[in-house]
Amino acid sequence: MSKFSIVFDRLRTEEKMLQKEAVELGHEASLIDAKITQINTSSQIQDFDFGNIVLERCVSYYRGLYFTACLEFLDIPVINEFNVSTICGNKLLTSMILKKNNIPTPKTYFSFSGDAAQENLGKIGYPVVIKPIIGSWGRNVMPLKDKDTADAIIEQREITDGPLDRIFYLQEMVDRPPRDIRVITIGDKAVTAMYRKSSDSFKTNIALGAEPEICDITNEMEDLCAKASKAVGGGILGVDLMEDKEKGLVVHEVNNTVEFKGLVKVANINIPKEMIEFAVNSIRK
């Protein structure tokens, strides 16, 4: 029997499924609410009851990231590691890591002021996609189809002026079917995949209502996902692929705290069981 913890800030179906599966496999799994857990610089590992490993499952990216930093400070292994979360939670870092590792990824442009973004757009042309470098569920991901739209979005960014609002991430609009592919990787191995189909939007997030449909994992997908997982540091990840009509499969995101309640509906493997077994095997290593 192994003992581990699932750290959460909002208890969702996924965390409950993970705990249930762990118990069914004969392990002890505690649910720890990050919001009410106190850690300080004098804290010791024995002050807590995290077990041998922690699955970090916070819905808030920054809360999960810095909670992971605290756990690693206490020498508690975490899935996923701080360095993995740092990369995967940041689209700019992810795009660069993918490219550096020769993994096909959409061409992406970075600008560091509104003026520079407009100048960049003048060279690239339209359409392009603008994305916030931090954020999920398709939030503030927008197609820029003409200069008027781009001007409005850039002006809006300058008004809101959040710390990341003047970092502009502009990505080529990939010519693809109205769907993308989400692959769950566990320990660099693609274990299950789904198409995420959208009928009335170019966004394909399940959180926005896209329909999941099982997708067979091809050798090419398996190879690409293994490379993408290794490039960001491994763990339990959600690799997103698009089917570029010219270039073939491209990886556009690697997700850190992967949600799987959509995929569970169509997958022919037991996803939480695979995750728990990976965590248990990680303890033994």
């Binding site: 809360r63 939670g89 931090i134 954020g135 569920w137 959040g162 959180a207």
Partner: peptide, 11 residues
């Protein structure tokens, strides 16, 4: 009262 959805929420 539950927290409202934050800008950094998601996977």
């Amino acid at each position: 009262e539950a927290e409202t959805v934050g800008e950094d929420w998601g996977e």
